Computed example of a mutant assay.
Amino acid sequence: MTTLELATCTYQEFTPDMGTPVRSTAGHPRFPLAYQLGGHAKLITPTRDLLKINARDAYEFGYRRLLNGNGLDNIRRELARIAAASPVDGPLVLLCFDRFDKLSPPDDWCHRSMFARWYTEQTGDEVPELGSRPRTAPPTLF
């Protein structure tokens, strides 16, 4: 299978020059988008039951179980279909709501970052984050 170019971002930070915006969330955005979505990556969308889990380890365990159950080949086929239907060059940008620079405490526990790690482990292909980075502690002086 050809290599898919993937990236992740938030709905709020996405701009059309980044690539094809792809929904990866259980719910639709409840705010107007300045762009049209190129599709919905259903096989990587967390279930409503997963969204009820507040503990990172338990969530990631359940989410990876979902990804493994759906299978890398099926996920890649779904994403390839979305990419083939897109008139835009560039990566499929998997979108969700969580801005990493707004989470408190700063953390990257979001399904899109978990998917990116899982996908890289499975394929060796990096999935860059295009949105804001997690806040870092200010440098200490002496």
Rank of each mutant, 00 (worst) to 15 (best):
T3K: 14
C9P: 01
Y11I: 05
Q12E: 13
Q12P: 00
M18L: 14
G19V: 00
G19Q: 01
T20I: 02
T20Y: 03
P21L: 11
P21Q: 04
V22Y: 00
R23Q: 15
R30L: 08
L33H: 03
A34T: 13
L37Y: 09
G39F: 12
G39I: 08
A41N: 12
A41K: 10
K42P: 00
L43I: 07
I44Y: 12
P46H: 12
R48G: 00
L51I: 04
N54K: 14
R56N: 06
D57Y: 04
D57G: 15
Y59D: 00
Y59L: 06
G62V: 03
R64L: 10
R64P: 02
R65T: 15
L66F: 07
L66N: 09
L67M: 08
G69W: 00
G71P: 13
G71R: 10
L72K: 11
L72A: 07
D73G: 13
D73P: 09
R76P: 00
R77M: 06
L79V: 14
R81K: 14
A83T: 03
P91V: 12
V93Y: 06
L95T: 11
C96G: 11
F97P: 12
D98F: 02
D98G: 12
R99Q: 15
R99C: 14
F100I: 05
D101W: 01
L103D: 00
S104D: 12
P106V: 09
D107G: 02
D108V: 14
H111Q: 08
R112C: 04
S113L: 15
M114T: 07
M114S: 06
F115H: 03
W118V: 13
W118H: 13
E121H: 10
Q122V: 03
E126C: 05
V127L: 05
P128K: 06
G131S: 15
R133E: 14
P134M: 15
P134G: 09
R135A: 15
R135C: 05
R135K: 14
P138D: 12
F142W: 04
